[in-house]
């Protein structure tokens, strides 16, 4: 694939009048009705909005899991809309990390092997792979839990394994889709502290969907969606 342009020139993410429609004819639903978003390196953006406001659709497009119906999405200068399925997979593999509401870890698979998974797809050698995975687990505070399977971990711990899996490849952007949606408030705060620290200490760009204003308050910037449009954007200054 084409090499992405240098990290410091221009924004990481640039959406230009992006729309996304599902279905055809009378059954057509417009989830995004023309949105413009620019996210710079090192930003921490919270995307908020009620259900059906288009925030998840926007997130899928940003995460290169979906493509716009019209408009353009440039990720580090690359027009994602022009990429094939496989090229988008490679983009995800090398530049993006994902954290989901439902954790989405592989069952019956140890924490270490879950974290190793993206490295395996990158072709990292066994020794380096296990070192990196252990380091990532340590960075989320799970040293000593390497051999535990998801069933043996609490929700908060599972989400931390998922974060370790997302950051083990040193991605440019971390996408978190309601990362605290399944957790209690104490566990949620721990997860948010983790994300904040990765953003602050490593300059990791974080884009997070949430409908909890408390969680959004950790972000530097908040984008509110309503009915497929961006309702407002506000700077938060973070904590």
């Amino acid at each position: 694939m084409t090499h992405a342009s240098s990290e410091n020139s221009g924004p990481v993410i640039e959406l230009n009048s992006v729309t996304r429609r599902y279905g055809t004819g009378t059954a057509e639903v417009s989830a995004l009705q023309g949105i413009d978003v620019t996210i710079e390196h090192g930003d921490f953006v919270a995307v908020m909005g009620p259900s059906g406001s288009g925030k998840s659709t926007c997130m899928n497009i940003l995460g290169c899991l979906d493509t716009p119906s019209s408009g353009s999405y440039r990720f580090m200068g690359i027009d994602v809309g022009q990429l094939s399925r496989d090229q988008r997979a490679l983009l995800r593999r090398h530049y993006l990390g994902f954290v989901f509401q439902g954790f989405n870890l592989l069952n019956r698979t140890s924490a270490l092997e879950n974290v190793e998974l993206p490295l395996i797809y990158r072709g990292t050698h066994a020794k380096e792979r296990s070192q990196k995975a252990k380091k990532a687990l340590a960075s989320v505070g799970l040293t000593g839990w390497e051999t535990h399977t998801p069933a043996e971990l609490s929700g908060g711990q599972q989400q931390r394994v998922a974060i370790a899996r997302a950051i083990v490849t040193d991605p440019s952007v971390l996408f978190a889709d309601e990362p605290t949606g399944n957790l209690d408030s104490a566990r949620s705060r721990e997860i948010m502290e983790l994300l904040t620290s990765f953003n602050r200490d490593r300059g990791l760009t974080v884009v997070m969907v949430t409908h909890d204003a408390m969680m959004a308050s950790y972000a530097k910037r908040i984008i509110r969606f309503r009915d497929g449009f961006i309702e407002n954007e506000e700077s938060n200054g973070g904590r």
Binding site: A89, L90, L117, P118
Partner: peptide, 10 residues
Amino acid sequence: GIRLAIGAME
């Protein structure tokens, strides 16, 4: 789905 999301090709 998980594999595809984290960058596995089809």
